[in-house]
Amino acid sequence: MKIFIGESSYIIRKGIIQLLSQFKEVDIIKEFSTSDELEKALLESSPNILIINTAFNHEDIETAISESEHQPVILHLFNTQLPHDSTKTHLSVFENKATLTEKIENAIYISNENENINDSEELSPREKLVLKHVALGQTNKEIAEKLFISTHTVISHRKNITRKLNIKTVSGLTVYAILNKIIGIDDIN
């Protein structure tokens, strides 16, 4: 599970990381000290959980998130005390370890529920077909025309392929495709 932290205070960031390290589900934590850096990272990939200080520029961040198909669970971090009836997605720097741990645990649970709906790491037949054309060196436009789908759909398939395989470059995908006999080694000459 991937978590992004947007918080300008170094000490608070490290404190949150310390809290998160209790959960075995959490494997990637990325921290950002400014809205700009966070926004940039969100445009590249989206986390499962986003912990963000209320002082960050929420409008830009929300636009960045809306682009991605995976919607993160958002926890808002306040620099002030919270009222008693505040929701479980609001955290305060004044809260004790037990309360914060419980709220994070809740967020991990919700995120897991969301994941289970559409997460298999196997490539779908459609994705395999797109991968085949990518590996053969075709452009998004060419693939779209061949498969009678929009370029936008091709891009979305490619994003999913990269996420599932953890391979970012076209030549890396080509190697994968050959190893898995999606294309033959002679096809690429």
Binding site: L165, N166, I167, K168, T169, S171, G172, V175, Y176, L179, N180
Partner: peptide, 15 residues
Amino acid sequence: EEKLYDLKNILIKYI
């Protein structure tokens, strides 16, 4: 660095 990342990943997962 991207290609190196891929190469590492391929070596660990797929070869």
